[in-house]
Design a binder for these strands. Sequence first.
DNA 1: TTGGTTCAGTACCGATCGGTGCAGAACGGT
DNA 2: ACCGTTCTGCACCGATCGGTACTGAACCAA
Lengths: 201, 201
Amino acid sequence: MGDSRKAVMGRPRGFDIDQALERAMRVFWARGYEGASLAELTGAMGITKTSMYAAFGNKEQLFCKALQRYGAGPAAYATRALEEPTARAVALAFLRGAVCTTTPPDGPSGCLTVQGALAASDESRAVHDLLVDWRNDAGVRLEERFRRAVDEGDLPRSADPRRLARFVMTMGFGIAVQAANGLGPAELDEIVDTALLGWPA
Amino acid sequence: MGDSRKAVMGRPRGFDIDQALERAMRVFWARGYEGASLAELTGAMGITKTSMYAAFGNKEQLFCKALQRYGAGPAAYATRALEEPTARAVALAFLRGAVCTTTPPDGPSGCLTVQGALAASDESRAVHDLLVDWRNDAGVRLEERFRRAVDEGDLPRSADPRRLARFVMTMGFGIAVQAANGLGPAELDEIVDTALLGWPA
DNA sequence: TTGGTTCAGTACCGATCGGTGCAGAACGGT
DNA sequence: ACCGTTCTGCACCGATCGGTACTGAACCAA
């Protein structure tokens, strides 16, 4: 009843919906939410506006789907990093992952969640808020991981997990801006090393 | 000949051009370049589109003027910080200034040069490039200051001025994103302290 | 073959985008 | 008083914005 085994009725879709979403994600990544026009999006997706609306609903929902795909794909490093054995290794993996994702050889520089809608006009406030939550969630997960590290004795009792998480997130955001500004992975990795010099023993 | 003593001929301007520019700057600050529409800009400036075009040329030149005002006003901390006696004091003043400017009690959160146009569509590439240069210039000035610090023995010979400058800039950009994300000055100051824990002796 | 259902393409919607043409108002110089 | 100059306000420009109505085309079940 209403599950996903909907019988394939009617005319079949004439394009690969996954590939279309991937391409839309890259356009949003490069242009931001407001900067990506329907014309450019559908052009890159290789479909017409009508097909896009039928498949995704509207521009906002398309962005939402693209954001989910971003989280599961290019930004998966943020989740993987949490599995590192020590807090320092988590921070290092997180930031190295950020560098890697924001400086891809074949894609747009920077981070979709930062380029997406840092500043936005009123009509796209929904997307703006969505991205604020997304970015905050990443920080909260880091904070919880660091809190566990304190419990496990991996971090000294004097360490403040929330503060450390915010610091790492700040570096991640900064890396995204620097990548958009033209810095390459080698230079950004140097910055990561510098940032972790003061990491609590 | 052709100097600034142009005789005040014709109908006098009916508004304060400085105040209008200030208000335009705040709109760009909050909305970004593309997100700020002519209607919202002129509405905040209290003038009509015609007056705006007569006084500033077009939207791009208005943004350019607003950016100059931003550099001389809210972002003047970046230049003032260079005058601090030690490299560490420079970095601290720079980042504290960034926190202060990106979390004003009466203005938009974040940094105009970051919100302005991280991602942009083709037509506003000129503004995008302008901001890239602006951000890079700030880094170069920090780098030169840190190089001087090495020469003066203020920083150890092993320190890499460019790397330190890039690290501080990265933190500054990250602070701007965190401010736009809702963090307040107290929390951001904590982050600054954390960032400087590893500063070379 | 027929009907129900879904997708694709064209042509179009009202609204808004950045930007202007034009007439008149407000000034200094003569 | 009159002129040249500059600023203002209104109406308007073509282009583009996100989004849709409508006509067929392409499929399945009966």
